[in-house]
Simulated assay, not measured.
Amino acid sequence: MAEIKVKLVRSRIGSTPAQRKLLDSLGLKRREMVKTFKDTPAIRGIIAKVPHMVTVIE
């Protein structure tokens, strides 16, 4: 299965509590932080909820 890298490009400050929970579930705590995940529909769904805050590196 392919892997993707997710990078937090915008600060969590000013985001809604729901968006913060989604970022917590990805483990993204600080700006410019990068995490690697398996490319699953669940991860893609989380990314789709906060596309303005993260970028995907495939």
Rank of each mutant, 00 (worst) to 15 (best):
M1R: 03
A2F: 03
A2K: 09
E3N: 09
E3A: 00
I4E: 03
K5V: 04
K7D: 02
L8M: 11
L8A: 03
L8P: 00
L8K: 01
L8H: 06
L8C: 04
V9E: 08
V9H: 05
R10V: 09
R10E: 12
R10S: 10
R10A: 08
R10Q: 13
S11G: 11
S11L: 06
S11A: 07
R12W: 07
R12E: 02
R12D: 01
I13N: 08
I13K: 11
I13W: 09
I13P: 09
I13H: 11
G14R: 10
G14L: 07
G14F: 05
G14N: 07
S15T: 15
S15V: 14
S15D: 01
S15R: 13
S15W: 00
T16S: 15
T16A: 07
P17K: 07
P17A: 04
P17F: 04
P17D: 02
A18N: 14
A18M: 10
A18V: 15
A18H: 13
A18L: 13
Q19P: 10
Q19A: 14
Q19R: 14
R20G: 04
R20K: 15
R20C: 07
K21L: 10
L22C: 12
L23K: 01
L23A: 04
L23S: 00
L23V: 06
L23G: 02
D24H: 11
S25Q: 14
L26F: 09
G27N: 09
G27K: 02
L28T: 01
L28R: 00
K29A: 11
K29M: 11
K29H: 12
R31D: 00
R31L: 06
E32C: 02
E32H: 14
M33Q: 15
M33H: 13
M33A: 13
M33P: 02
V34F: 03
V34M: 10
K35E: 14
K35Q: 15
F37P: 00
K38A: 12
K38G: 10
D39W: 13
D39V: 10
T40E: 13
T40Y: 11
T40R: 11
P41Y: 10
I46E: 02
I46V: 15
I46R: 08
I46Q: 06
I46G: 01
I46A: 09
I47N: 06
A48G: 14
A48H: 14
A48M: 11
A48L: 13
A48K: 15
A48W: 10
K49E: 03
V50H: 04
V50C: 05
P51H: 06
P51L: 06
P51A: 05
H52A: 15
H52I: 07
H52C: 05
H52Y: 14
M53W: 13
V54P: 00
V54T: 00
V54H: 00
T55K: 15
V56Q: 06
V56S: 08
V56Y: 04
V56N: 10
I57T: 15
I57R: 13
I57L: 15
I57G: 05
E58M: 08
E58C: 09
E58D: 15
